[in-house]
Structures are given as C-alpha cells and as structure tokens.
Design a protein around this nucleic acid. Structure first.
Length: 884
RNA sequence: GGGGUUAUAGCUCAGUUGGUUAGAGUGUUACGUUGACAUCGUAAAGGUCACAGAUUCGAAUUCUGUUAACCCCA
C-alpha cells in the first residue's frame, strides 16, 4: 500500500543517504562473473588520493554512473570498478607539508617512517574520496575497490617492469631530463607546462684565444655558462666560417672551449653563435654527443649553484644570474641585454620553473609500444567520442619520445633494481633479493627511486581485474566497454593504458574513450586553489542534493566541450527535481481506489491518454538512442522537456477533471492507470541521471520489484506511438494557446469562463473537438464551445485567432479594442506574407520540385496551404473590423 | 611555427545524418495563489545563426578563406 501524501517540497537530504545505503546493503552495485551474460564494464579514472573531489570529478563520475546505470537496467552484467591513485609527487608534497607544520621533515623521519605516514594519509583521504563518490550516487562495485599501490597492483607493476626490462624496452641512461628543484625529482616531458614569458636575451662576448677578437653569443640562461664546453655556429654562416676550429676563453671561468659548426644552430637567432652546455640543455646535450664535449653539471638538485661555480656556489640560480650579469658587465663581457619572449617550462605540480639537467634515470623505449596503440585507434578498434580527439592522440603517439619513468621520491612503487657493489652489475627482479645473482655478494643496494605514477595507472584496466593471473574477471570484463575521462589526460593516461593494455592485457583496454571537458567557473576560468574560485561538489550536494548537481552537470553540455558552473543552473536543476516531485505528489494524492491489476482496453483511452503515451514512447526512444551515442546532455534535455512541458503542463492538467470526478470510476481508473504507467516508466528513464529522487518516488508509487535501479529499461514502447492522436492533440493545444493569447491581449481574467466559437475546415477535426470539449474548458476556460458551420455570417464583437484549419472566435462584447486588434492582425498578416512568399519562391523553383524528395515537397505544399488559409481568415477578420 | 576548439536571444548554452516561422535555461515585461508545485502558472518581447565566398533545388548545419577568443603541441 502506497502512502498518499509526501512532503510538499523536494528535500533531497531526507532520502539520499537512505537509498544509497539500501542499494549498497543489498549488493545492487556488485557484479559477479556470470558466463554467457553480456558484460558492460568501466574502470574509474582513479582520483588522486591527495585530498578531495572537485567539480571535474563530479562530472566525470556522473557521466560514468549514467552509463553504468543505463546498461545495468538494460540487462548487462555491469561492473564499475572503483579505486584511488597514489599520486606520487602530489601526495608526497601533501605529506611533506603536513610534516612541515609539525615542525619536522621527511628527512628527519627517514624513508620508512615517511612511507608509513603516507599510508596513513592514504587511509584518511582515500576513504573520504570514496565517501564523496558515494554521496554523488556512484554505483561502484565497492567490494572490488582497488588502490594503485595495493598488493595486486604492486605485483602487476613489478611484472610489467621486469618484462619490459628483459625485452630491452626499459633502460637506464644519462640524459637531460626536466628537473623540478622544488619537488626534487625528474619529470617526464608531459609533466612540464610551457608558458610564454618575457625574459631577457643576454649577449656575452667570449674571447678568441690568442687574439683580440671576440665571439658574441646570446643566451637566456647565463648562469649555465659555468657548464659551457663549447660554442656552436651554423656551418654555412659566413660570419663565423674563419673562426670554426678556434678556441675560445670562457669569461670569468677561464676555461678553454672549442668553437665548432653544427647545423642545429639557427643563424637567424641571436648572434648566430650559441654557447653549448651539454649538461643543462637537451639540444646542447645532443650537440655535445656529436662533438664529444664534456658534460659539466653546475647546479644542485635544489636549484642552487654547485661547488664547481666558485664564488657563486650555493647561490640560488636566479640570484646567481643577477650577480653573474653584474660581474660580466663590470669586466666588459656583457654586450647588451634584450627583451625576449620565450617559452619556459614549469612543473605541472608546483609551477616551479624546471631546470633541464643531465641525470641518470630509467626510461621506457616507446616507439614499438606506440605503433600498435596508434593502429588500434586508426583501425577503429578504439573509438574516441568526440572523434576529433583521435587526431590529438595519434599526433602525440606518432611523435613520441622515450618516457622517463624514475622519480626521486619515496612515495610510490620502488624500482625493482639492485646494484651489486662487488661486481657492479644491475639486477632487475620480480622478487626482492639479498644476494647478487651474478657474483653471490650480499653487497646489494636497491635503487632508491620510485616509478612515475602513470606507470601504474597505465595498467589500471587490467591490474584491477587480477592481472597477471588469468582471472575470470579478465575474461568477462576486459576489454572494458568505455573509458570516461577529461581531455587533459589523453597523453598521461589514455595513451599509456592503450599501449600497456595491448602489450600486457592482450587486447585494447577499452572500446570507447568518452572525452569530456573541464568545469570552469562562471567567468570561464579554470577552477583552482590559488584563484579560490573552486566550488566543492559536496557543498552543492548538501545544499541542493546530488541529483540536482548531477542533472546540472550534464544538461546543456556537449561531449568534449568545457562548461561553466552557475548557481542559477543548479537552481534550475533543483526546480526540475521539485517539479517532478510535485507531479508525483499529485498522482499519489489521486490514487485512491487504484487497481494494480487493471489494464484499460484500447477504446477506453482518451485523446490525452493516447497522446501522452505516444509522447512517452518517443521520449523513451530518444533517450535510449542518445544514451547509446553518448549524447547524455541531449538525453537529459528530452526528459526535462517531456516531464515538464508535456506531462506536467498538459497531461496532468487534463487528467484532473477525470480524477476529481470520483463518481465516474471507469474513466478515473483509466486516468490513474495512464498517469501511473507514464510516471513509473519515465522515472526509469530518468533514473540513471537522477538516481535518488527516482528511487524515492518509485518506492512510493505502485511498482513491481525491489529497486528502480534493477528494474528493466523501457526498450520496446514503439507500439504506443500514435501519430493521429498527436496531430489531433497538437491542434487542441494550439487552439488552447491561441485562446489564452487572445485573453491575455484584452487582459481578460484567465479564470473567467467565456464562450468560444469554432469553425473547422475539416470534419474529422471538428469531431475531435466536440468529443473533447472539456479540454478547452479546463485549460482555456472556454465554455461553452460552439461549432459554427455557416460561413456566411461570422460572430460579431469577437476576437479572432486562426490555427491550422480552425478559426477561433471569442465573443467579447465591450472588450474589443478595434485599433489594437487591427494592429495585431496586421502584424500577423505581415508575418504570414513573409512565409507565403518564401514558400512560393520555393514551390515555383523547378530545381526544388525536381530534386527534393517528394515528401519534403508535399510538406512544403501543406505549409503553404495552411498559411494561405490562415491569411484569408485573418484578412476577412480585418475587413470586418474595418466596418465597425 | 603546427594542430584543435569556439563564435546562435541581454547572459550561459542546445540544435546528432543539410528541409523547424531557429530552441532551452536564466534575465526582462504584463497578468495570476481554483484543491501537485510561487522551487509555480499564463502570455509577451528579444536572434542578419561572427564576416566573405563556394557546393546545393535548399546551408545555423558541408567546404574554403578572413577576423576574434581560448586550448594543446613544438
């Protein structure tokens, strides 16, 4: 027995937690391996365990949950794998900061204790994030929750590292990498963000040995001068041809360095002569290799000048730059300083300017891994939605460089490599070792570094399913169905997963990549901590409910595009929830005597019943189609429009008469049936978008089953489509609108009943209206309704409107303002003329008649006739007005 | 330098294979609390679909160019 009364206002706080607990307690999110059942699976983009979810996460997870709930209702064996990412640099920075506040530091604590602290952090914030995902309504399979550093993932990471090493795809080497002096670690190329900045170009002259001649070089980073081991010019540069091969004297330092030619040098840039610092610049590094130059590191890991820089040793790199420039100037080496705009790399984590520095790091050879990953997308095995991201993905992979995977951090997967101090050999091993397998020595040191976080997240789709074991989960749920993520991590994550999935998972990791944009603030700026413009999704959920937030995040949004956050839009979504709530409340208040077993005969349906069932069927089809094509915003929009503009505005209003008339049980129960059917099924369509409110209402209204989330998706409703009913109902609705319009024109009280006289061009339509007089009475207060058949005399003192095939007269003695009415109708004529002209042009165009499909031509002809009839009626009316 | 996105009502945005009198939310104006909802209802005003070409019987939609803003890569 359902309750007949629910609260007047939608109050999400009163039920959201309750239903989440209900779903979770009943294991409705849990997926078991069921052989033979169609699988649908998504692995969550694991949020960083650093802190809390932001609006972007809310959007990402809403999209996933919609897809998951939709497919679950459609009968797929649906798995949504949740988990967190250990987020090496970011988390270490957070823990560092926490320690600093306690007056201690990671170095004081030591590695072991520090890692313990990081685990504590993970426990605290990991569970907070999972709580936040729950409050959003995410239907993740929590029994399977994973963490990138849990035992299974660690095992997978080791396995992959060892295999890649054994294949020679992982190697150690000294190369220029991007060094962050603040985070104190090497970074990969994509962890560096380039920003154009105004800087200076310093022109410095280097003396040619044993002459009074100088070669003028230009540099943006003079402080690296201490590491200069050469100066390069272009081989064809006439200015320097004679000097190639000579020796130069490095100012201040006094080192003798060669001047050589290399075609890398751009003769147009600066002076055409560049200082070469192989240990501090990637291009110089390569030139250094070609010309066999020494690499001299002149900076320490924290961005200070190294011991080999004399009096500058210990200075910060920028402080050194200032001093050095002063000194160069004093000693006459500085020629000039120019303003210069250039791109400067910044650490994507802390925004510190990175320092390119030579160091020994671990790398992955990417070329052979990238090829199949490109192929998988080009062949269409993996599809990006929207498609344009294919190009971005392929371009990056086609120009890929080796991936620096070692990080000088403590929080992460420690690299499984051991160095033997006795024989000097390096051993990479799946298991920890204490004895050197080469010489048997116990003098082993394990590599201190950890792996790039993305190395383990790259394995996420299969490591979470038990790889390297050949599990049933892998067999059923891998490849996953779709990956939902933002365009900002296509390189970091998507591309790496594809490469790793193909290499180790034995197949692509997902069939679709559904890319979404960023959630920005109302001014279009990125939400960020430093701007303080971020909006906490939890705050929105607490104020307005998760359903509201979810609905707001997906309406009016197209795949791949950014969106702006507006509180007004949140309110609009909340109002929609309230509307649905009250529509349901209305039904519940009128369900007395409802018979669950009653199903009406076809003949019992009213026009409105047939119409709403047909509209509902269209909506179901549209929502389904749009969900299948990842057009979630469109799907939500069609539900919004159906519920508000059709179901509430028209159907509920029209059902009132029948529901309030308790004597007429027969009609009343038909109305109850249709109302209940349409609402219950619409709730199912809406459930993926707004899981809580739909469950709350569903549990109150007549229903079958335990929970709406496991009810079946309305898939086969096409039989309810009824074009005739829609056409007739549309005419009724247009007539009602026209009458309302007239009444508004003359400021007639909307509630006041008054007569309406109609003239029909079509007798079927006339029957429709006479059969449904009540509709005009109920929604336009137009009563009684009289049908005029004699065309020769028209009602006098009446306002007029014309809709297709129907002339409407509203007798309004004393209310007609002839002048105003004339103006209004004249304007109408102008509009009609415009349309008629346009159509005439079209319909006399031979090309159109010959080439356009016949149904289009027919449609246009019908339109033309409609406008012409309308115009005739309006003109007649105008001439009548002229006689008054 | 290469690539991409965006340009539609005052504001924020939809408009999926070319055929709608170009839509929504919000804002604005007028009216309205009769028994789902004022978090509401009714009605209205508001757009040369950035600009210029091209393709087509037909372009907001396809193509080319221009302009502007933003983003990614180097």
């Amino acid at each position: 027995m359902q309750e007949t009364n629910i609260p007047k206002v939608y109050d999400p706080q009163s039920f959201e937690k309750k239903w989440y607990k209900f779903w979770e307690d009943n294991k409705l999110f849990h997926a078991e391996v069921e052989k033979g059942k169609k699988p649908y699976s998504i692995v969550i983009p694991p949020p960083n365990v650093t802190g809390q979810l932001h609006m972007g996460h809310a959007m990402d997870n809403t999209l996933q949950d919609i897809l998951i709930r939709f497919h679950r209702m459609r009968g797929y064996n649906t798995l949504w794998m949740p988990g967190c990412d250990h987020a090496g640099i970011a988390t270490q920075a957070k823990v560092d900061a926490a320690l600093r506040e306690e007056g201690t530091s990671r170095h004081e604590l030591g590695r072991k204790k520090f890692v313990e602290r990081a685990w504590q952090w993970k426990e605290k914030f990991g569970s907070r994030i999972m709580y936040q995902l729950r409050s959003l309504g995410s239907s993740c399979d929590w029994d399977r929750e994973r963490f990138t550093m849990d035992e299974g993932c660690s095992k997978a990471v080791r396995e992959v590292f060892v295999r890649l090493y054994e294949e020679g795809l992982i190697y150690q080497g000294t190369r220029i990498t991007n060094w962050c002096p603040h985070c104190n670690t090497a970074l990969s190329d994509i962890e560096v963000e380039h920003e154009t900045e105004m800087g200076h170009l310093y022109h410095i002259r280097y003396q040619v040995e044993n002459t009074d001649e100088f070669v003028e070089i230009a540099t943006t980073r003079p402080e690296t001068m201490f590491g200069d081991t050469g100066v390069a010019v272009h081989p064809d540069d006439e200015r320097y041809k004679a000097l190639v091969g000579k020796t130069l004297i490095l100012p201040i330092v006094g080192r003798h360095i060669p001047l050589f030619a290399d075609s890398y040098v751009d003769p147009q840039f600066g002076t055409g002569a560049v200082k070469v610092t192989p240990a501090h610049d990637p291009n110089d590094f390569e030139m250094g290799q070609r010309h066999d130059l020494e690499q001299i590191l002149v900076m320490t890991n924290d961005g200070r000048m190294a011991a080999n820089t004399g009096k500058y040793a210990g200075m910060d790199r920028y402080e050194c730059r200032r001093c050095l420039v002063e000194d160069l100037k004093e000693q006459g080496f500085l020629v000039k300083i120019e303003e210069h705009e250039h791109a400067v790399g910044h650490c994507s984590r802390c925004n510190t300017t990175v320092e390119p520095m030579a160091s020994k790091q671990w790398f992955v050879k990417m070329e052979s891994l990238a090829k199949p990953a490109i192929e998988a997308v080009k062949s269409g095995k993996i599809k990006f939605v929207p498609e344009r991201f294919t190009k971005i993905y392929c371009n990056w992979l086609e120009n890929i460089r080796d991936w620096c995977i070692s990080r000088q951090l403590w929080w992460g997967h420690q690299i499984p490599a051991w160095y033997c101090d006795s024989c000097g050999k390096t051993t990479v091993s799946r298991d920890d070792i204490t004895v050197c397998p080469v010489c048997g020595s116990h003098q082993l040191r394990r590599d201190e570094d950890v792996l790039d976080t993305w190395f383990s997240s790259g394995l996420w789709p299969f490591e979470t399913m038990g790889w390297p074991e050949e599990t049933e989960e892998l067999k059923q749920f891998y490849p996953t169905s779709v990956l939902v993520t933002g365009y900002d991590i296509i390189f970091f994550w998507v591309a790496r997963m594809v490469m790793m999935g193909l290499k180790f998972g034995g197949d692509i990791p997902f069939k679709h990549v559904f890319i979404h944009g960023l959630v920005r603030d109302s001014q279009g700026r990125k939400m960020s901590k430093s701007l303080g413009n971020g909006i906490d999704p939890v705050e929105v959920i607490e104020k307005y409910g998760a359903d509201t937030l979810r609905f707001m995040l997906i309406t009016g949004n197209t795949p791949g595009n950014d969106m702006r956050f507006y509180w007004e839009r949140v309110e609009s979504a909340r109002n929609f929830a309230n509307k649905l709530w009250n529509a349901s409340r209305f039904m519940l208040m009128n369900l007395e005597g409802f018979d669950k077993t009653f199903v009406p005969e076809k003949a019992q349906y009213s026009l409105a019943d047939q119409w709403i069932l047909s509209r509902y069927a269209h909506t179901a089809e549209l929502v389904t189609k749009n969900l299948e094509h990842f057009e979630l915003g469109e799907a939500a929009r069609s539900l919004y429009e159906f519920i508000w503009n059709e179901f509430c505005d028209w159907y509920i209003e029209l059902s009132k008469a029948r529901l309030y008339d308790k004597e007429n049980t027969a009609e009343r129960r038909v109305a109850q049936y249709v109302l209940s059917y349409v609402l219950e099924h619409t709730l199912r369509l809406l459930h993926p978008f707004m899981p809580f409110i739909t469950e709350e209402i569903w549990q109150h209204i007549p229903h079958e089953g335990k929970s709406i989330m496991i009810s079946s998706w309305p898939d086969n409703e096409m039989a309810k489509i009824n074009d005739v009913a829609e056409k007739n109902m549309t005419a009724v609705m247009e007539t009602i609108k026209a009458i309302r319009n007239i009444r508004a024109q003359v400021n007639a009280a909307t509630g006041k009943r008054s007569e309406v006289i109609l003239y029909f061009a079509d007798s079927n339509m006339q029957k429709t209206f006479t059969d449904n007089k009540g509709y005009l009475a109920a929604l336009a207060a137009a009563e009684p309704m009289t049908v005029w058949t004699d065309k020769s005399s028209r009602p006098e003192n009446a306002m007029t409107a014309v809709v297709s095939g129907i002339e409407i007269y509203l007798p309004m003695a004393g209310l007609i303002d002839v002048e105003k009415e004339t103006v209004r109708l004249t304007k109408e004529i102008t509009n009609l003329n415009k349309e008629i002209e346009r159509l005439a042009k079209k319909l006399t165009n031979e090309g159109f008649l010959a080439k356009a499909p016949s149904e289009v031509v027919e449609k246009e002809k019908e339109k033309q006739k409609g406008y012409a009839d309308k115009k005739a009626a309006v003109e007649e009316r105008l001439s009548y007005l002229a006689t008054l």
